[in-house]
Design a protein around this nucleic acid. Structure first.
Lengths: 63, 63
DNA sequence: ACAAAAAGTAAAATATACTTGACAAATAGA
DNA sequence: TCTATTTGTCAAGTATATTTTACTTTTTGT
């Protein structure tokens, strides 16, 4: 299932996938894959994404 | 840095590392390493741990 | 309509999460 | 003290997260 909360939080800051990827130090494809939902990032990356987007783990990754 | 919140939540349910490991489907060494803090589990595993211990991601893994 | 940027996707390579097996140190109970 | 359980730790192997390159499709701006 897609992570629409992540996509939405990124859009709210007007960031591209590339910009978010650069900010957290991964490739654009990794961000794309996380939003697409077909895999399982590390918690460290999730936390970096949350901090960049001013959200918490529960807000973006809790089910 | 050690994850003492995880260790504490596990102790509160009187579970051994082995029992938690079995409950979430990983090895005991993986649980030990996460509590020891010297690595970076996947979000899927973190969520499984949280559900088993009746906690949320923010409670156990947010900084 | 056109061009440029952003997003979706895929295959092969690399980095690292996680397993297995094993053993020592620490803790708990009789 | 003695034994059993739990925890800490290590090395080698396997599974998978992430990268790189590359190409197509979709969206955005003029």
């Amino acid at each position: 299932m897609k992570n629409l909360r992540l996509k939405s939080a990124r859009a709210a800051l007007d960031m591209s996938q590339q910009q978010l990827a650069d900010a957290v130090g991964v490739s654009r494809q990794t961000i794309n894959a996380i939003e697409k939902g077909d895999y399982n990032p590390t918690i460290k990356l999730c936390i970096a994404i949350c901090k960049t987007l001013n959200k918490t783990l529960d807000e973006l990754f809790w089910e």
